[in-house]
Design a protein around this nucleic acid. Sequence first.
DNA 1: CGCCGGGTTGAATTATCTCAACCTGGGTGG
DNA 2: CCACCCAGGTTGAGATAATTCAACCCGGCG
Lengths: 248, 248
Amino acid sequence: MIAAWERTIVPADPLVRRLSAFGSLGPAEIDLLRDAIQRPVSVASRFEVSTAAGKGRQALLLVSGWAARQRVLADGRRQIISFVLPGDFVSFSLHREPLRYASTVALTPAVVAEADMLLEACIAQDYATPLASTMRTVAAAEDALLAHQVTRLGRQTAYERMSHLLLELRERLSLAGIEPGDSFTLPIIQEMLADALGLSVVHTNRTLQQLRRDGLIRMSGMKVTLVDAAALAALSDYVPITRLVGRS
Amino acid sequence: MIAAWERTIVPADPLVRRLSAFGSLGPAEIDLLRDAIQRPVSVASRFEVSTAAGKGRQALLLVSGWAARQRVLADGRRQIISFVLPGDFVSFSLHREPLRYASTVALTPAVVAEADMLLEACIAQDYATPLASTMRTVAAAEDALLAHQVTRLGRQTAYERMSHLLLELRERLSLAGIEPGDSFTLPIIQEMLADALGLSVVHTNRTLQQLRRDGLIRMSGMKVTLVDAAALAALSDYVPITRLVGRS
DNA sequence: CGCCGGGTTGAATTATCTCAACCTGGGTGG
DNA sequence: CCACCCAGGTTGAGATAATTCAACCCGGCG
């Protein structure tokens, strides 16, 4: 499998699209992005991403599939810290060694690739390049998402949390150029949603049903449609990511 | 007040101590730290830190007092994202403009100071200096704390959350060289604890009482004593910060 | 065919919240 | 100097959100 991938052109598009949403990139930067993504490796669902990708990588990019940063308590309770979507970095810069407090696991079959060259390109010239500037904005956006996750868990009801998360996922997929619009594929089981929202599986299920009954969302199979995104945003106090970080 | 402070030697000690805990600093670095902290400003309790400090600052350090990053929902519900203790950065690098998704407010009378020079010292030489390396570790530790906050809120009971938070505060104060040992001053009212833990004030109160009744903590005035830190750590699955980030 | 992962449902239980009252000590104005 | 006042802590009791446990259903697949 790895061999097969290595001969394939890696789709850098999610990354390119996402970065374009956070800063203006010229053709030179885009070429650099395409070159910087190397040695893709596929990871089976539920397996740890960094183990599969090998040690020592400084920057790891999720090319396709979904993953999650998670922390597991001693008694087995699991909390998903954040979802990692295509075009997101699994890890970036800063931390040399794998972090001990959280692991990143694939939620679906996924492909990750090294992006160390990208990291180096950012460091060059004291972080003064347009690319580095864009990456800073991306980092700020990630920070904002974490702050929102904390607020969701600490101060919102199940109904609000679910609405908020669905809106976030929709926007992030949209920014990465995957499924723009009000429908998207939710390739994860309800247990994973529950672990992200700090809820039991049963209550997650009932909350989704309530949203359906209220006509706010529609679901069929893995497809979710946000029927009334405005209402979802209003009830859950959702602020679009693009309005959180300073887009010039 | 500002004038008075400007003529005073600024205590850089919390910063120095904290950084020393995350990397080895030579006398040169320590001198640099002392010089880098400039123009301290005092902030009254409940006021926003960045407003008080003036705009455009890239790196802002909390010199004394407690502060908190928080997000307030439209209906007034408040969530504290993270506590900012002496020696912590209110903001650092990355974000040029003030972030729109969270504000940092003083929880007690506090003093903040600019640390832009420190930022510049880090950027120099492509982040290859010992100081930059230490700062990277500090950033990783902050990241770990946020992951823990998410896990606390999502998957722990009130009792566990409180234990976990008290242990975290104790360790952080200890690392900054403020009140090492099992006792420390908790200069905030229960409402703020509640907003950090995602609980109501009433339940926060009762949870503290329960911990006291169980002989795990003792409180008198603002002083908290962790009577049985080991038990608290065991019940709340607490992992010391120093074990989370790669201390060499 | 039969199993199994994942979704759905019901009913009892529990954690936590809300509301409302009361208490306390330190500060303040008369 | 005393009476009041207020922020913050504490208590009780009823209400509610969410959990747990257990069962059942369904479609895909070996």
